[in-house]
Simulated scan of single mutants.
Amino acid sequence: MLAIPGYEDKVKGDAHVLGVDKLLGNGDGSAAAINALANEVRAKGGLFQVDHPGSKITKKFAGCDASTLTWGYGFDVRPDTVEVWNPSSSIRAAEDYLDCWLQRGARVALTGGSDAQTQYGQPQGAGYPTTWVLARNRSQGAVLEALRASRTSVSALPPAVGGRPLVIEAKRDGRFVPVIGDDVRPGEKLHVRSLDPLTDGSLRVLANGQTLLDQHLTRDRAIEFTAPAQPGWLRAELRLGNDLLEQTPLCGAIDLGANLCPYDAAMVAMTSPVYVR
């Protein structure tokens, strides 16, 4: 087990300060003060994360109107990562918030967190979901570096019970290599595959806010696609196949320690962005 020091900071919403071993000042809690905090964290080699921005929302997040979120700084404080997947929060709203950052040209990774407090309806504990990080080596510095570089994938299950990441790869020097968090060329041929040998599902690739690919991914197979001609970003997600789940945009406030929204319950895995340059 490798421990990464950090803490959850209660500001106008919840944030994570990762990679520091002491509490840092919030100032007056304004956006300027929180940006100063984030910059101090980065200077120390850490990173700043917005936690579960879709928590306890009561109306749909739409059109990048961040006032609907529990994260009170909107787009005034840039995070390094966004905890998109949390069992007590709306995945869909957090996805949309992340995509709004990407549409602004920011490079922001996604993570998942169990928030395991063994409360109502959450018997699984830590690792549901699991964040996978492609790091140079098994060290605190390498893990934080990989998080900053968006080299992450999140799965519903931990590895002990068969969870595996979803990956996007490109052919380099005659072999396929992971490119999540990296730059690819417009029109470059890519493929996406799940390292989970047991799970089929509906694969969706999003690019610049639009659906680039939506088809069934068979276990142990890869789906090839082409990076869009327009510069920007793309990311992938794998869900249990049911089109009706897409029509459940909001399940109301989530405050029971468990998220029972069908859209969120169907999520199997998702990746951080690949950047088209």
Rank of each mutant, 00 (worst) to 15 (best):
L2F: 09
P5C: 11
Y7R: 01
E8W: 01
K10Q: 12
K12I: 14
G13Y: 03
L23P: 02
L24Y: 10
L24N: 05
N26R: 08
G27T: 03
D28I: 02
I34A: 09
L37N: 05
V41E: 13
R42Y: 15
L47P: 01
F48R: 02
D51W: 02
H52F: 08
P53C: 12
K56Q: 15
K59D: 15
K60I: 12
K60L: 15
A62H: 05
G63Q: 05
G63M: 02
A66W: 00
A66N: 02
S67I: 11
L69N: 13
L69I: 07
W71K: 08
Y73K: 09
F75G: 07
T81E: 10
V82R: 02
V84K: 04
V84W: 00
S88R: 03
S89V: 05
S90V: 00
S90G: 04
A94G: 09
C100K: 13
W101G: 11
W101M: 07
Q103I: 13
G105M: 04
A106R: 06
R107L: 06
Q117N: 05
Q117P: 04
Q117G: 12
T118S: 12
T118G: 10
Y120F: 08
Y120P: 05
Q124S: 15
Q124A: 14
G125S: 08
A126W: 06
Y128Q: 09
P129M: 04
T130K: 00
W132R: 08
R138F: 14
Q140H: 02
A142H: 07
A146I: 00
A146F: 00
L147H: 00
L147V: 00
S153R: 02
S155L: 01
P158S: 15
A160M: 07
G162P: 05
R164Q: 15
P165Q: 06
V167A: 07
G174F: 07
G174C: 15
V179S: 11
D183M: 01
R185W: 10
E188I: 04
E188A: 12
H191K: 08
L195N: 13
D196H: 04
T199L: 12
D200L: 08
D200C: 04
L203K: 03
Q210C: 06
Q210L: 07
Q210G: 15
L217Y: 07
I223V: 15
E224K: 05
F225T: 04
F225V: 09
A229M: 10
P231F: 11
G232W: 07
W233P: 02
W233D: 00
L234V: 08
A236N: 14
G241D: 09
G241M: 03
G241L: 06
L244A: 14
G252E: 10
I254S: 03
D255E: 08
G257M: 02
N259H: 08
A265D: 00
M267I: 08
V274E: 14
Y275P: 00
Y275D: 01
